[in-house]
Design a protein around this nucleic acid. Structure first.
Lengths: 212, 212
DNA sequence: ACCTGAACACCGTTCAAGT
DNA sequence: ACCTGAACACCGTTCAAGT
C-alpha cells in the first residue's frame, strides 16, 4: 500500500535556504524545515541522511545560484570593467543571502562546504577574465588573487569588521581598481617579481573553470 | 561559609580554546569545557553568562594572541618586505589555530565576533605599513585591501577551496607581490584611477589603528 | 560564595507501527 | 513506500540544596 509523497528533496532544500536566511544557521533545525514543508521531522530522513547533509545541500544550492548570477554577467570588450562587474555581482549576491554565502567558505572540519567542482564552475567567469587580464600563464594565480580579495572583503564587511569609519564602498572601489591594475601590469613589467608564477603551461589543458 | 574557587575565567577560556581546536565549534560544549577545568557544567555559569559569551571570550582571546604575533613582526626599512612578513604571519597564525581563526570573521547574526576595537588593535601594524606604502591618504583603503586579500586567501585555503591544482604557496606569493605593487604605485601614476580614493585627510586624527 | 544533582526544554535521530 | 508518535541520547540552562 504505497503512501503518497508529501514533499520533495527540492522543497526541503528550498525551505532550508529560507530558514537559514531567516533564522541563521543555528535556527536551521530539522523541525523548522519539516514544519515549513508540512511534514514531521522524522520524515526528512527519507530524503536526507542527516542535518549535515541538509546543510551541505543548502550550500550546494547556494553555489548553484551564485554560478548562475556570475555567468549572467555580460562580457564586454574591457576585462577591467568585467572584473569589477563580477566583483560587484558577488558582493550583491552575498548581501542578498548572507547566511548562505557564509556557508560557502565556512571554516572548520566537517563543514558544509560544497564540492570543489561546483565552486570551480561558479568561478569560471572570473578565471576567464583573469586570463584576459594577466595572460594565460598567470590566469590561475590572478583569479585566486582577485577571488581571495573579493571574498575576504565581503566576509569582513558582513562580519562588521570594517569599524574604523571611512566609506566602505569607496574601499571596495579602491580595492578592485588596485587589484585590476596589478593583474593587468603583471608579466609586462619588472621581471624580478612574480618570476616563479610563470609556470604550469599545462593549465590550459584543464576545463575552463576554477574556484581559483 | 565561603566555598573555594575551583576554577577561573582564564582557565575556562583557555580550556575553551583547546576544546575548540580539538573538537571544532560544535564540540565546544559547556560539558566539555567544564570537564576540562574540573567542575560540572552548571558551575561555568558563575563566570560566563552562557555559551555564546564563552565563544565570544574565546574569539577575543584569539584576537589578542593574533595582535601579539603581528606586533612582534620586526619593522625593516622596506615596507614591501614588512607587508609580506605580516601576511605570512597571519597565515601561519591561522594554520596554528584554524578553528579559532575561523571565529574572527564568522558570518551570521549573533556570531562570536570580537569587538571592533580589538580587531583594530590587531591590525595596527598593517595600517602602519600600508601608510608607508600607499601614503597617509590612502592608508585606510590600502590596509583594507591587503587585509581583505589575506583573510580571503587564508579562509579559502583553510576551507579547501583551492581545488584546481597549481601551487597554493606560489599563489600566495604571487598575490602579495601583486598587491604590494598595486598599493605602492597608487597615487604615483594614472590619476584617472582611484581619484575618488584620495580624500579623508581627517584620517590622521584617528588613533593609529585599524582593522582595515 | 561557589558547587552540585536534578530537572526542564529543545534538538537530532531511530524505529516500530500505521496507512 | 512513505509518514508518524514515541523514545533515547545529548546539550544548554535554571535552581534549590549543599558546603
Amino acid at each position: 500500500m504505497p503512501a503518497p509523497e508529501r514533499t520533495t528533496l527540492d522543497a526541503i532544500v528550498r525551505a532550508g535556504r529560507d530558514v537559514l536566511e531567516a533564522e541563521g544557521l543555528a535556527g536551521l533545525t530539522m523541525q523548522a524545515v519539516a514544519t515549513r514543508v508540512g511534514v514531521r521531522a522524522p520524515s526528512l530522513y527519507k530524503r536526507v541522511a542527516d542535518r549535515d547533509e541538509l546543510v551541505r545541500l543548502v550550500a550546494a544550492a547556494t553555489v548553484g545560484a551564485l554560478a548562475e548570477r556570475l555567468a549572467a554577467v555580460p562580457e564586454s570588450a574591457d576585462p577591467r570593467r568585467d572584473l569589477a562587474e563580477l566583483a560587484a555581482t558577488l558582493r550583491s549576491f552575498a548581501r542578498s543571502a548572507p547566511a548562505g554565502y557564509g556557508l560557502l567558505f565556512a571554516p572548520g572540519p566537517g563543514a558544509a562546504r560544497p564540492d570543489p567542482a561546483q565552486l570551480a564552475r561558479a568561478s569560471a567567469p572570473v578565471l576567464r577574465v583573469a586570463a584576459a587580464l594577466a595572460g594565460p600563464d598567470d590566469a590561475l594565480d590572478a583569479a585566486r588573487t582577485v577571488t581571495a580579495w573579493a571574498h575576504g572583503f565581503i566576509s569582513m564587511e558582513l562580519a562588521g569588521a570594517f569599524a574604523l569609519g571611512g566609506d566602505v564602498d569607496d574601499a571596495f572601489t579602491y580595492g578592485i581598481a588596485r587589484i585590476t591594475d596589478a593583474l593587468a601590469s603583471a608579466g609586462t613589467d619588472d621581471p624580478s617579481i612574480g618570476t616563479g608564477a610563470r609556470r604550469q603551461a599545462s593549465m590550459k589543458a584543464r576545463t575552463a573553470s576554477a574556484t581559483s
